[in-house]
């Protein structure tokens, strides 16, 4: 999110320029600009309705934008002839509601995309699944079904399922909002672990302490715009009254 002139050699992975998005008559995004470099961890915060989840969904083309440009790993997301498959291979996304496939075991959930999309042989895919499940600490659950797991465990499986596709960017859409406080910690630890390993991540979150600790950059969205952005220090010393008010309400 730093200014391009400061670091000329840096590697921009995700870039949004003048992004507008309307749902019917409601303008949810009113000119969003962001740049995310390789290995950067960005936390998007803001009130509900500020457009933060929509911005994230636009990056993965779950919503199409009305104007502006979005570029992810060289894919022109705003272009009508963007290669969707290639885009989705580069982006992993984890949702608030986990969205595991209930008819498949944990292991099969993780193996599905590597075998179906990348045509990796079953045996290798299983080893891959066990590796990523180990990474989120759930190897012993491989043979169980999603509804036998707690919410926190399901969310960790969802992260593992994304990781198995080896994405270049990970998006997290309020991944702990559906969880009890005691289950939130185990999911956040997994994300923090990913951050230290250098994964490029954009997360929409309500966990201010987590954002402060893990994020390189905080983006405060308000009324469909990037209202204020900077390092975690803006959480201690907000420049705009809107961010100050938001932070007061969050605590």
């Amino acid at each position: 999110m730093r200014n391009a002139t400061e670091e000329p050699g840096r590697d921009v992975v995700v870039s949004l320029k003048g992004v507008h998005k309307k749902f019917g008559q409601t303008e949810v995004l009113r000119g969003v600009d962001m740049e995310i470099s390789k290995g950067e961890v960005v936390a998007i915060i803001g009130k509900s309705g500020s457009g933060k989840s929509t911005a994230l969904r636009c990056i993965d083309l779950l919503e199409s934008i009305n104007s502006g440009t979005i570029t992810v790993c060289g894919h022109k997301v705003h272009s009508p002839d963007v290669d969707l498959r290639a885009l989705r291979l580069d982006i992993g996304i984890v949702f608030q509601s986990y969205n595991l496939f209930p008819h498949l075991t944990i292991e099969e959930n993780v193996m599905l995309a590597p075998t179906a999309v990348k045509k990796i042989p079953k045996k290798e895919a299983r080893e891959l699944a066990h590796r990523v499940l180990g990474q989120v600490g759930l190897m012993e659950k491989a043979g169980q079904y999603p509804d036998q797991l707690s919410g926190g465990q399901q969310q960790r499986v969802a992260i593992a399922r994304s990781l198995a596709m080896e994405p270049k960017v990970m998006l997290f859409d309020e991944v702990t909002s559906a969880l009890d406080p005691q289950l939130t910690g185990e999911v956040l630890r997994v994300i923090e672990d990913l951050a230290t390993k250098g994964m490029t991540m954009i997360m929409v979150t309500h966990e201010m302490n987590f954002a402060r600790r893990v994020a390189d950059t905080i983006v405060f969205m308000n009324e469909g715009k990037v209202w204020e952005t900077g390092s975690a220090s803006i959480l201690n010393d907000p420049r705009t009254p809107e961010l100050r008010e938001f932070l007061q309400n969050e605590l």
Binding site: R88, I91, N99, F101, A116, V117
Partner: peptide, 17 residues
């Protein structure tokens, strides 16, 4: 649920898959 379709879509599965 629609979210199942979306999750599969985000894993780069084709429409048929």
């Amino acid at each position: 649920p629609r979210a199942q379709w979306e999750a599969a879509e985000c894993l780069a599965l084709s429409r048929t898959q």
